[in-house]
Design a protein around this nucleic acid. Structure first.
Lengths: 288, 288
DNA sequence: TTGGAAATGGAACGTGTGACTCATTTTTTA
DNA sequence: TAAAAAATGAGTCACACGTTCCATTTCCAA
């Protein structure tokens, strides 16, 4: 029986994920040419969805007939039914991220309602997240983690708009049992607090344009004491950048004059938790 | 010239958005049957991408030849070239949102690296945003805005993990020149602060499981004074819900034990700005 | 109302499609 | 190593496809 198990009562994969799993599972036992197509299919699913049997076969470097045997071996009637699965995949996947965002943004801009405001903030947050996900500088990220992991006390410095981020960092550091000091504006004791920091500590400073003068000033002061600084800011021209050992540029989308904090938050949390992990690892090594 | 302007040098739409715009623009001047297809095409772009001329024509209730006339009227050679645009649309839209998220999450789960941690937080934030965007209860949203808009002073109540959100709300309210009072845990004057609130004020209370006892207690106290409460919390069983006039259920995804705040932040900002707008509108009306 | 033009329906056509068949090659088994 | 079985390549074929063409209907202007 040349057609393998196709005539048996085995179930035919009707959705792409099942199909994919089936192919991966049988990969080892497939004949060479069939395996060649299998690999091509999983690598270029869009081509399978749109191409003709002939064009796909050519791209994959096999004969059209082999393509049909491949389909039959998986339990399909022929190439066409196999292709349906690949088409269904494209059809079923919801409108793309960008389309959704565009829709949200359009609604937010045209509609004057309150729902539009909400959509605007969601869109701004999503955009910011997707931006930072693309642009995060990994070496900087690793450097910042290393720097913070070996600090005795982590000082967290931010005012005004950035303050919520700082307070969440402080909360998270506390939960991770990492000594930290939040420098807020309330009591006016900042100068004294800053004076305690030494080169074996570290600072996370966060500030966005328009930069709070107090943040700048305190960052300058603390950097002069030789304390290493990790800065999260919004441009290379930020006054924070010149004082910082490592700095991140985070482009937050804004809506209605208020900038999203989602990207900054994600970065801040990642930094914090990564530092926590690095410390745990280092501690474990020291003991061993 | 039966084929309309097709023979002129007008540009043929090569991408879906241009095509869409072109169709919408000409909609009025199109013959009946052609317009019928135009509407069908914009409503069921996926069918155009995958179907055959015959099947599409049948679905749209026209003759196949009309379908081709439609394509030609838009400047295409024939139906096939028109179809390419619809296929390109599916092909070009990046891997779907869900696929991207799944990828991020997979990386975050398998990989132990620091980048994985970052991806995890971005994924958690994205998930939360997409969830709240789907599930936001609009009547509740409007009600909360109305309630907060007419308050003399808005009290903002949150501890621990929720505190960053509260501080951002307070910052934003301040910028919008809306009188507000942030109730933090620092000074221990909370009871006194809470005592000032009257029924013509309002409260935004934020708390997630495990609920900070202080937040619950203060919310209870303030509700007994007849002050209307808007609660942002994470479950219908939240102790906040029973005290609140309006409450929002926000499901935040978490990563590494730290919950994202992105959805809560977006909701909080939307609330704040919407209240600001509503107040401006009302003020304008009063003057007029 | 009538003439002409545009729009439409439907049949006919040629091309390119997927699938089948069979000869050949490769792999496996004895 | 020989024989059998499986896999592959290539040619063929029926047919469904997109397209074209022409007869008919609909619409508009005179």
């Amino acid at each position: 029986m040349g057609l393998g198990g196709a005539t048996m009562d085995e179930r035919v994969p009707r959705d792409f994920e099942t199909l994919r799993a089936t192919i991966l599972e049988r990969r080892q036992s497939l004949p060479k040419r069939i395996a060649q197509i299998a690999a091509y299919a999983l690598d270029n699913p869009d081509d399978i969805a749109f191409g003709t049997a002939a064009s796909i076969a050519a791209s994959a470097g096999v004969q059209p007939s082999t393509l049909i045997r491949f389909a039959q071996q998986l339990g399909f009637d022929g190439f066409t039914s196999l292709q349906q699965v690949f088409r269904e995949r494209l059809r079923e996947r919801n409108s793309s991220y960008d389309e959704r965002l565009a829709a949200l943004r359009a609604k937010a801009e045209e509609g004057a309602g309150h729902r539009a405001i909400f959509d605007g903030f969601v869109a701004a947050a999503s955009t910011s997240l997707s931006d930072i996900s693309r642009t995060l500088n990994e070496p900087h990220f690793e450097e910042a983690i290393a720097l913070l992991a070996k600090a005795e006390t982590i000082y967290v410095l931010a005012k005004r708009r950035s303050y919520p981020v700082a307070s969440y960092i402080a909360y998270a550091l506390g939960k991770l049992k990492i000594r930290n000091q939040l420098i807020e504006s309330a009591a006016g004791l900042n100068a004294e607090m800053v004076a305690f920091a030494t080169p074996s500590d570290a600072v996370i400073a966060i500030s966005f344009s328009p930069y709070a003068p107090a943040t700048i000033e305190e960052t300058r002061a603390i950097s002069e004491q030789g304390v290493p600084i990790v800065a999260i800011t919004d441009s290379s021209f930020s006054p924070l950048a010149q004082f910082a050992k490592v700095w991140f540029e985070v482009a937050e989308a804004d809506f209605g004059g208020f900038r999203s904090l989602s990207a900054t938050m994600a970065l801040a949390m990642a930094l914090t938790v990564a530092v926590g992990e690095k410390r745990r690892d280092t501690g474990r090594k020291r003991k061993a």
